[in-house]
Computed example of a mutant assay.
Amino acid sequence: MIISPGLVIILIIVALVIILLAKGLMIVQQSEAVVIERLGSYNRTLESGINLVVPFIDKPRSITIRRYRQVKGDNLPLVVEETRIDRRETVMDFPGQSVVTTDNVTVTVNGALYFQIVDPKRAVYEVENFTQAIEVLAKTSLRSEIGRMELDKLFESRKEVNDALQVTMDEVGDKWGVKVTRVEIQDISMPSEVEDAMRLQMAAERKRRATVTEANGQREAAIATAEGEKRSSILRAEGDKQASVLRAEGERQAIYQLRDAIGADDPQLVIGYMLGQKYLQMLPDMAREGDRVFIPYEASALLGAMGSFRELASEVGEPTNASNEGLRRARQMMTGEAGLG
């Protein structure tokens, strides 16, 4: 079978068209971008979808990215060249950095940086290696911020440090077409002697707080006890006061009733009668169990007073057994016969 030259030419042309179409079609994935240069100059930025380029004339410009790879527990830097620019948010976990605080304590700070490429053109043309530039800027900014703080303040101000770093990184990153979304301090390591000193300080602080709490508890308990005793004393005093008032009121009413019963207008007579009653009631108990009682009063005056009291009691109509017994005891004591029971 003889193939004509015209058919060969047609086949060659079709093959070339297929090759050109294959080279001219570029599919860009979602959240990716490609920077196209035409004859060495920037032409356009391809977005996601199907894009047409001129084969052998339009070429994608590669971007230099520095990444870290875990090798035996260590983060080793790895520099790669990529033509497709990832526009998703990316995290960079850069190694720990030694930083000196204002109180001359050397600490190792490990941080993480979250960034996103918002302008692929500036990320390619404005900086040679934007990831390395961001990392170096983050380290220098971290040293600058922490270098103005004391060690104790550093642990309390992580959020302030993160916010300050984000503002600094965002201002510079905007020039490179990079948006720094968040900067986080992951870990702060310090020398062992500093950790021991801080541990002792925390133990002393907890002990001090416990002592203060115990003292406050004892003080409140003492106040509560004193308050209770105060209220109890007030209540007892109120009770004694009311009892005294009631006793005085009872005695006053008894005096008035006795005065009305004997028909005496002289208060002294009523008082003398009541004292006589008390005295006569006490006489039987004054010389018990053989004790001798000496009364430094004139016997005749004492017996006369007792007789008056007995007559007064008879007039009132009260029982005179106690009065008679008292008179008998008084006569025995006057004659030396007391103590016979």
Rank of each mutant, 00 (worst) to 15 (best):
V8Q: 04
Q253F: 11
T211D: 15
L52V: 06
S244A: 15
G239V: 07
L165N: 01
Q116E: 12
D93K: 15
I63A: 03
G250S: 09
I262Y: 08
E81G: 08
N321C: 07
P267Q: 10
V127Q: 02
V293G: 07
D291P: 00
N75C: 11
R259W: 05
L11D: 05
M92K: 11
R288D: 07
G6I: 08
E82W: 02
I19P: 00
I134L: 15
V14E: 07
V28G: 03
V34M: 03
L151S: 01
P60C: 01
I27D: 01
K153W: 13
K278G: 12
D187F: 06
A33N: 00
P267W: 13
T45Q: 03
L7G: 01
R329T: 09
E160M: 14
K23Q: 12
I50N: 02
L258Y: 07
R292G: 06
N110Q: 15
M274I: 10
R259E: 03
Y114A: 14
Q242C: 06
S314P: 00
A243Q: 06
Q281L: 13
R331V: 02
E193D: 12
F115G: 01
N129S: 03
E195L: 14
W176M: 13
V54G: 00
T64R: 10
R252M: 13
I18C: 06
K23T: 01
A197P: 00
V270I: 11
V54P: 00
R66N: 08
T106N: 14
E238S: 09
S233E: 12
R329D: 04
I13A: 14
L113K: 02
R209G: 04
Q218N: 09
A264L: 07
T140Q: 13
T102H: 08
G307L: 09
T211V: 14
V71G: 02
T320W: 11
M202A: 13
T225R: 15
S308K: 09
A22N: 13
E81Q: 13
E337F: 10
L76E: 08
D86H: 08
Q166G: 05
K207V: 11
T225F: 13
E249V: 00
Q242E: 09
L142D: 07
F294Q: 10
A138P: 00
K72V: 11
G217R: 15
V161I: 14
E47G: 15
N324W: 07
D170Y: 12
T168A: 15
L113P: 01
F56E: 01
D74N: 14
E150P: 01
A264C: 07
E249S: 13
G6R: 10
S308Y: 05
Q70C: 05
L52M: 09
I262T: 04
